[in-house]
Design a protein around this nucleic acid. Sequence first.
DNA 1: CTGAAAGCGCTTACAG
DNA 2: CTGAAAGCGCTTACAG
Lengths: 338, 338
Amino acid sequence: MAATIKDVAKEAGVAVCTVSFAMNGSAHVAEETKKRIFEAIERLNYRPNQSARGLVTKRTNNIGLAVSETADGLENGILLDVIKGMGQAAGQYNYDVMLSFQKPHAAKPDDHLLDVYRKQSADGLIMMGTKKGEMPYRELVAKRFPFVLLGRPSAECMCHSVNADNEQGAYMAVEYLAGKGHRRIAFITPCSLEVDASQDRLNGYRKAMTDFFGGADDELLAYGSFAADSGYAETERLLSLKDRPTAIIAGRDAIASRVIEKAAELGCKVPEDLAVVGFDNSVVSQVARPSITSIELPMLEMGYRASNLLIQLIEGGISYDNTQRIVLPCILHARESA
Amino acid sequence: MAATIKDVAKEAGVAVCTVSFAMNGSAHVAEETKKRIFEAIERLNYRPNQSARGLVTKRTNNIGLAVSETADGLENGILLDVIKGMGQAAGQYNYDVMLSFQKPHAAKPDDHLLDVYRKQSADGLIMMGTKKGEMPYRELVAKRFPFVLLGRPSAECMCHSVNADNEQGAYMAVEYLAGKGHRRIAFITPCSLEVDASQDRLNGYRKAMTDFFGGADDELLAYGSFAADSGYAETERLLSLKDRPTAIIAGRDAIASRVIEKAAELGCKVPEDLAVVGFDNSVVSQVARPSITSIELPMLEMGYRASNLLIQLIEGGISYDNTQRIVLPCILHARESA
DNA sequence: CTGAAAGCGCTTACAG
DNA sequence: CTGAAAGCGCTTACAG
């Protein structure tokens, strides 16, 4: 069926290894010979068989994204942007992107990671969406398999990582609102504090409140979750406070949109009576009315940077132990709500 | 490093081929021997090397999704749902999902498809997002490479396909509105008619208008595009018509949300003065106020069905020539806007 | 600069 | 039911 390296060698009238050398540049081949070889390759539409090559080089030229159940539940744009960013980096270095999904309700959530390693179906792995204390990649790292975490690495298991600066993002939100004269600024967490990003945003909020106003008032803090009506009830509580907040930072755009609705219900105008800031810069923030000022996490670039790091790790460009921690700043998009 | 089949054979005290037979069930192996082998596999954490296996079986156990530039520009949820659906089917049959991105502005847009075939890095391919007349998969099909089109197949190049019934979707939208007493129903195409889905929705609209009201009035037809303000100008035209429509079907939710805005601007209340129906059942339709009645294309199931079909094609479960055309119905989600 | 040969880790006829 | 051997399509020392 498909042409093999033997066919090319015969067509060009050279030995098989000469073809290999010419293609991979692993040894000098006379210009004249090279030309004949490339012509033969062109004519036969030859492309080396990945499996055969992989068997000897121990490389598949695949990088994988391990999709945990948590990641599966994220805002659509987030996972997709990561995938697209990976695709861009992979394309530049001639890698393909492979997805490895965690089976729902798998007994061992780390199996889909380890399987990639054991089957050697990818040369390295990126993972996102781990919760606090969950380190399904621990064994992978111990075995020194190329791995990059998309998120915050834990001290117990050092590994290369790329993350968005969620703390800075929340800090920036407070700063922005403070600049507009707000002092009573409330915060609703995006989800459980078991998710690092959630905790980090809360920390950034607290830090900024302390820096700007000498401290955060605990009654201005609310705990949101992944539930659809998250933030709905909490908004009601916040807005019925005696000394009610003039601004609310919602940990996710989806929550921000609920805040706006609840506010409208209570006869509270956004942004005149209440400023609202969200996180994610999702379509929701653009479509909601008023449109929502939102903090973007540069997911596309994170996917891109993580893949670059991973590929360098695979190709030996950087050391496995000298773990890099890349942290990218969040970006504020000002819209109507604040 | 990783254990090989030889290690397992030695550990279990049998020949290499016996291990292979036991694992693949390709020959009878005594129960007693089997048990010893599986224990050895467990102990050594052995998993067969994909490249080695692929070299002899001519299988990678990967299925690929070819992402065209068009697909890249779709609503986030659409591409992601397809990917997730693929992941589900792949997981059941022990395949992995590989993504193959078209390089932006590539000279030959079909190269990324053909490369997969030539490198044999996947056993089959699914493609979505082709425009009218574009058939980058033509050569693939001619070579009888396992392929499933996510979309409408053209008569010139028959292949297995999975599609949503866009025509039925639009028809259903008209039917729904007619049931609510509307007669003057306008339609805005989701994008250029070069995209099959766009043309199909238009056809469904026309057919329904003919069936219910004896014909469609051309002044009620508007052409939308991928531009962000698409539908904005057209809504203005439609609403300033002498005999103005009481309902507008927008080809995409994003357009529907613009229609609602424009209507509000013109002092026209939705749904009282104007009913609006969108397509995609995206987050936009849920977040917009009023929320948008929308026609869902079952993308997750389409991805799932396409993968199932592809895997059967790969494994010889169905014939290559007896091309199946699976068409899944759209689903109407009634919300506030109509 | 080029050729002959070994070997990567599997599977699969072929004997026994 | 099990073993020895060939071979899949590459790459890479090793000679020349």
